[in-house]
Every structure is written in C-alpha cells, then in structure tokens.
Design a protein around this nucleic acid. Sequence first.
RNA 1: GGCCCCAUCGUCUAGAGGCCUAGGACACUACCCUCUCAAGGUAGAGACACGGGUUCGAAUCCCGUUGGGGCUACCA
Length: 473
Amino acid sequence: MKSSLRVRFAPSPTGYFHVGGARTALYNWLIARKAGGSFVLRIEDTDETRNAEEWVDGIISALSWLGITWDEGPYRQSDRAELYQKAVDRLLAEGKAYWCDCTREEIDRRAKERGGPPGYDGFCRDKHKLKTETSAIRFKIPRPGITVVHDKIRGDVVFDHDNLDDFIIVKSNGLPLFVLANVVDDIDMKISYILRAEEHLPTTPKAILLFQGLGVEELPIFAHVPVLVNAKRQKLSKRRDRVAVEDYKEMGYLAPAMVNYLVLLGWSPGGDREFLTVQEMIDLFDIGEVNHSPAFFDEQKMQHFNGVYIRELTVEEFVENCLHFLEKHDWWVGDSGQRETFSHIAPLVQERVSLLGEVPEMVAFLFQQEIDIPSDLVESVFRKDVKSGQILSEIKEIYAGLGVFSHDELSKVTRAYCDSVGMPLRKVQAPIRVALTGSKVGPPLFESMELVGREMTLSRLTSASELIGAPQP
RNA sequence: GGCCCCAUCGUCUAGAGGCCUAGGACACUACCCUCUCAAGGUAGAGACACGGGUUCGAAUCCCGUUGGGGCUACCA
C-alpha cells in the first residue's frame, strides 16, 4: 500500500550534478522508501539563462547510476508556466502581491539614503501600480508578524517579518522565481515532506508565507540537512569544487560504495557500524538523527570504502565492472583470449585497487606488444644496481630451460636461483618485474609471467638486458 | 552590516547527565606478514572551542564569548 508521504528532489540544471545534490536526493529517497511513499523528480529550470539540457541528462544518468529511482517525473518547471500564472493572478487579485518597477539602482540608492540595512523598502507596496515593460511582481510580506519554521532536524526556527523583504516572485520577463515555482509545484504535486539543503532555510519562511497566501492550511514537513563543504569548509560549489558524480563514476567508483559513503555524511546508524546495504539504510535511516553541522566530503575515505566494496565483488562481477575501463585503451580488443587472460589475473588485481580506473595500468603489460620502461626505472633499477644485468641474463637461461612455464615452476626455480647466488627474492624480483611490466609495482610476478607466456617473457628479459648494455642516452 | 544555522581527534562520526581513563572509521606512525605493491594483523599518536552557570555529578542541559558557515539577486 502506498503511503501518502511524498517527497521531491528538485535540482536545477545549471551545472554538473555534484555529490551534495546526490546526498540530498539519497536522503529523500530513503525516507520515501522507508515510508512506502513517493519520490518525485522535478527539474527546476526556470532560469533560462543558466540552464542547459546536458545538465538535465547528467542529473538523470547520475541518479540512475546511484540507484536512486523516482516514482514520478521528471517534471520540468518550464512546462508548467500556466500553473504559476494562475497562482500569481490569485495573489494579485487578493492583494497579496503587487507590481513593482523599481530598478536595483533605485533600491540601493534609497537604502543608502535611509542609512539602514540594504534591501527592498516596499516602495511600490501600496501604490497599486500597473504592469509595465520592466516591472516585476513582489510578494507582500504581512507586517507585523513572525513565521516559525518547524524543522525536523533543527527544531523551531523563528523569523521576524521585519527581516523579510517583499521578494520578487515573477521576473519582468514573466518567468517565476524559484520560491514561487517551488511552492506552487509542491502544492500541486501534494508534496508532504520537504527535505533539502540547509542553504534553503532562510527562504523557508517566504515559502511558508506563500503556501499560506495560496490558501494551504496544512504545511508540508520541513527538514534542512547540513551542507557538504570543501576542505576550506565552504559550501560545495559546482564551479569551485570538482565533485561531479559523473567524474567519480569514470574514476572507477562503484555506485553502492558511493551511496554508502554518502549516507554517512551527516548520519550514522549508531555505534561502530559503517557498512550498510541499501535495505539496511532504508530500515535504519531516521531524519531526526541527522547531524546539524556541515560535513567535509572526504574523497580519501570514500576511496577506502570503494576498495572494500571492490573486494567484496565476486571475480565475475569484478571482471564485468572492469571492462568499461579496459575498453578505453587501444591495446584492449576484448577478444576471448584477452578476456580469459584478464580473468586469470583479476583476483590478484581485485585486492590491489581501490578504484576500477587503476586496473588498466596494472594489467597493460599483459596485453601490450611493446612495453615502455620509464627512463628513471632504467636508471635506478637496471643501471644503478650492478647486479641487475647478471640477474636478468642468468634467470633468462633458467626460464628458457623450464619444462612447464607455470607460476609454481617459475617460483621454484627463481627461489632456487636466489639461494644459489645468496640474494633475497625481494632483491632479485625487482629487475625481472621491471623488465616484464615496466613498473616496480604490480600483481604477483610469477602469475604474471605465466600469463605473459614463455616467449614474450624471454624476449622482454632480453630487451631489458640490451637496455642495460646500451650506452646511456 | 542584518538575519539564521552550527561547534567531539586533521576528517566522518559514536555519545540522549553517571556506562567516558571519550569508542569506531579514514588518513598518519611503527611493527608483523610478504616476490613488489596492495590487502590483512598488532600497537601508537590524536578531540569534547572558551568562559560562566544548573546539578551530588556535564561532552551531554542553559547563558555568553569566540570561531566557522549559510542567506541577504528580476540564481536555485
């Protein structure tokens, strides 16, 4: 049975979709799912100068990726002009709003002359002005008066109407402003629970006055969640901070890991728990437990979460998830041979990465015909260490004579070689690894050599030996 | 400036007046494990912003201070 609880997530498509929006959407989604209510997606695109269709696509794909599903919408405010017009006509007719043709300059000048706080002074309030080319419509704040916001997270917040200006609800170009469109839609869509970021708290009394002006008796429940901040503790901004959900997806974050991290930003299930399934989040989430203070979005911790989630994947799932990242490279053709090779190395890679985006560079040596050894490694591992040339040529002979080119055999003979020359395996493996993979770090060596195969392994060892013998560039 | 919100380790948090010698996680340090790198294990360092109350007792309640943030647009 559907409950009557209805929430909405109402982003504006004025930039890429960032993690703060994702967290707000997630909280809304959780309370809707918990109550068996409805989640409405509404695109607030009334500012035609800042909107772009690509941002709408971004919002939709990011929400889908995160698994935040909507029951209705996406509605677009740009399609709903009639509704706003009707509401404004009513407000005008009832004397709750008025036309104003003051310019910003005039308002500022009067404020300066007045010496008081800046802001609109109600100049046109009772002048019954008519519409002109440049006039806008303002809402008439009832004076005197106070409005109390009953906030689920913050308790009662009292606003004195003396501190509220008669704000504009319709621009001179005829388009509604955010508060108005918001309230009209919330009424029309029967939104019963408004959960949004704290930055909206100061405009909430205006919204409430609008609800009342439009004849609504039972207000929705309000809850203002703390904002997400950057390292300088400023509100996350689309322009300033690179925190697009889409970017994280492309770095190789897993959606469940991101959701798990996000839900913890401002909320905790209590005790020492951190890892939760979506169902547990739905069951346990309680808006009253949400923190009051801003939270820093810590990528490092999210990455750690991602590593944990990656390691919890089955190997098949891991392989499946890696494909997208492998396909970005020209050495990956994705035929059955490559896929099989990758499947063999996958378990060893899976426990070594915390982002799927790290996978390709870790396995590239398996698929590239020619590997590139960085000059600094040639210098430090091959040339600076005088034993390297000897190790490479001797181990090559041993490998060449191997009956079965398997990781067990490779391990056995390499360890025997270590004993014979009195060097630790730690030392011996270094030049071999660099020769084989072009890197000092990577998956376990013997498994890697087995997968690369005898022929290619030997030729890379030979190339490396030649590199050592060659004159320095 | 005005209005509003907020305040526990560097970060995210646990904490609902005695369970707190303040717990966990990320990051950090050391050690163990180890073919590199990870992962894992063990240990360590690290916080109740400050000042007043209330109370037998305060991280927890109240007030103030300080600090941070948000809003103050014909943006959302």
